[in-house]
């Protein structure tokens, strides 16, 4: 039995924190809805971090930063699993970017590495001109 919360936010950086805090709350909701759900900071932090990265990525690569397009976030609750999908209409991008080499002090490029590490699965699809990033994580793998 899946339940979905849909959130539509203006595609502006100042809303990144709102998106990530909501993701953390959604993760906490899943924990609390499970029997014997203990405080699992890594689970809530994973969603907080991954959504912050995905939202920032989406907004930063917007084609027309002057007139930002809305970003739609779905939180899909399944038994012991939370999936977040983020939709935007920006140009397509690849999630298969190699991790940056820290020894050369790069200031960018860690977002996808963080998303992939903290989530169980991260997939990216393009459908009718829309990018769909889908990220999911099991509560007790």
């Amino acid at each position: 039995m899946n339940r979905i919360i849909t959130l539509t936010l203006p595609g502006e950086l100042i809303f990144a924190r709102f998106a990530s805090e909501t993701a953390a709350k959604a993760a906490l909701l899943l924990i609390n809805s499970c029997d014997g759900g203990a405080d699992d900071w890594k689970f809530t932090h994973a969603f907080e971090l991954a959504v912050s990265e995905a939202f920032t990525n989406t907004v930063s690569y917007a084609q027309k930063p002057a007139s930002p397009q809305p970003v739609t976030i779905d939180f899909i609750f399944e038994k012991q699993c939370l999936t977040v999908t983020i939709r935007d209409t920006n140009p397509p991008f690849s999630i298969e970017t190699p991790a940056p080499d820290i020894e050369s002090y790069p200031e960018r490029g860690y977002g996808l590495l963080l998303m992939r590490t903290v989530m169980d699965t991260v997939t990216c699809a393009r459908e009718n001109g829309t990018n769909i990033i889908s990220m999911s994580k099991q509560l007790n793998p």
Binding site: S20, E48, R108, G111
Partner: peptide, 12 residues
């Protein structure tokens, strides 16, 4: 809370 943008600023 720190994300990759914040970390990038610290590394820079």
């Amino acid at each position: 809370f720190l994300d990759s943008s914040g970390l990038g600023a610290l590394i820079g």
